[in-house]
Write a protein that binds this DNA or RNA. Structure first.
Lengths: 244, 244
DNA sequence: AAAATATAATATGTAATACATAATACATAA
DNA sequence: TTATGTATTATGTATTACATATTATATTTT
């Protein structure tokens, strides 16, 4: 039995001890408190000093825990006013993290694919909620686009596809997809370096997608979108294989 | 001109001043530093004391900024070792936030829909990557399920649908969807209270979805999944109207 | 000489205290 | 009655000191 194996064997008998810092414990207790007291959006929470006394730790520790919760916008603080629970923003923090440089290749790939998945899956909601005026809006966007397929003109992409989600009336998705765009561009560009691909012959432009929306149904939309995104689907499938 | 209008008029001339706290500024500077120095995953960052000196602020402020970055797992710290940049976890924090009680009805609805969108949109990746052994796995899962449609048995739902994402080989999605499940259940249950709905006659079970995967294509999968989720699609469309 | 053990050095974690600052409520004067 | 000044309060920032865990170095033991 090697030294390493011996250590692992011992470990299975003893289990490594985990040391939760005071801050960790306080954070947990705070979350428990909110739950137990059934505190809602807008409700005030105890003052820092009250928390210090109640838990018997320094204000330093309390404040570090609170900072964590403020970071995810679960609470907000105002001078003299105290702190309140807030409607947390699910996407907060994400914009700080969604930078190519700090994410692994695999996660980037995951997010790239996530956008593709969303574009395809939105169809049902899109058709359930679209109004005539929405079609007009989409056509207005088309007008501003150049005639040739502006495949990677981020502005156009953002505006057009963002509008799709807006029509589907899902605000979280609207914001999410706009965050994904830079990632998408990055992954795409990186893919391009591997092999310069040309547009497929039956490439579907935004205009054709609008047509599918106007005269079609979810299936037709998906068919158009799938072909619009085909180059990306091909790319991600190829690249995922490289990662393995 | 009313008092309120007057204030707004003044505001347009003066613009409200925004006061970035020291912590805010330090946080920004840190992020800039990481970018400028092109620091990557695993690279060490300066010691707390070095940062204090360099920026001329107290360790308190430095530490609060660092706490924020630690919260989103952009950096990690170890005693005596110092701090390093880490591969941040996009979904961290989300599990703290994804609790029905602290999210608004609208956001909950958004997330409910997001799951539906993902289930539908995953088809292409699913079929691009599925292997024969995956089919066998799915069938094994089916065996453990009861014969009747276990529509809201969370365990079954989680296992079955989670497996779908696993087959699609997108780990972020796997984790994301498992986080969404409690939300999904909550929103669904709340919807049930409004009106007790019965299963549609042509309800599609997991078994039928597997069949669509085994013998079909993305379109057939989506057709099956759409009918499997029909009750939920109907519900969200109805409920969104209520929110308006 | 090699391996195990003790010691020192270092960077983060926690505590305590003091003061700064912004927001509110209250008091005061025109 | 309204605008301005003042006090109060809770969070924000600074400073200092010490605790603790990890690494590196030195020492002892075999």
């Amino acid at each position: 039995m090697s030294k390493r194996e011996g250590a692992r064997n011992l470990q299975s008998k003893l289990r490594p001890i985990i040391n939760y810092s005071l801050t960790d414990q306080v954070e947990t207790k705070l979350l428990e408190l909110f739950k137990k007291e059934d505190l809602r959006n807008g409700d005030a929470i105890p003052k820092e000093n009250e928390l210090c006394e109640a838990m018997g730790v320094s204000r330093t520790v309390i404040r570090e825990s609170l900072t964590r919760l403020k970071t995810i916008v679960l609470i907000e603080s105002k001078k003299n006013k105290g702190m309140i629970l807030t409607e947390p923003d699910l996407l907060i923090g994400l914009d700080k993290l969604l930078q190519p440089k700090i994410l692994s290749e695999e996660t980037l790939q995951d997010m790239f694919e996530m956008r593709l998945v969303l574009e395809m899956g939105i169809a049902e909601l899109l058709f359930a909620r679209i109004k005539p005026s929405d079609i007009a809006d989409l056509k207005a966007i088309l007008k501003t686009e150049k005639d040739y397929p502006a495949l990677f003109e981020m502005d156009f992409e953002a505006r057009f596809h963002g509008r799709i989600y807006e029509i589907a009336r899902n605000n979280t998705l609207v914001r999410f997809q706009s965050m994904l765009l830079p990632i998408f561009k990055y992954v795409h560009d990186k893919g391009l370096k591997l092999k310069d691909e040309e547009l497929p012959k039956n490439y579907v432009t935004h205009a054709l997608i609008v047509k599918a929306i106007e005269t079609g149904n979810p299936e037709k939309y998906r068919d158009a979108m799938k072909r619009h995104l085909k180059i990306h689907f091909d790319k991600t499938i190829k690249m995922r294989k490289l990662l393995e």
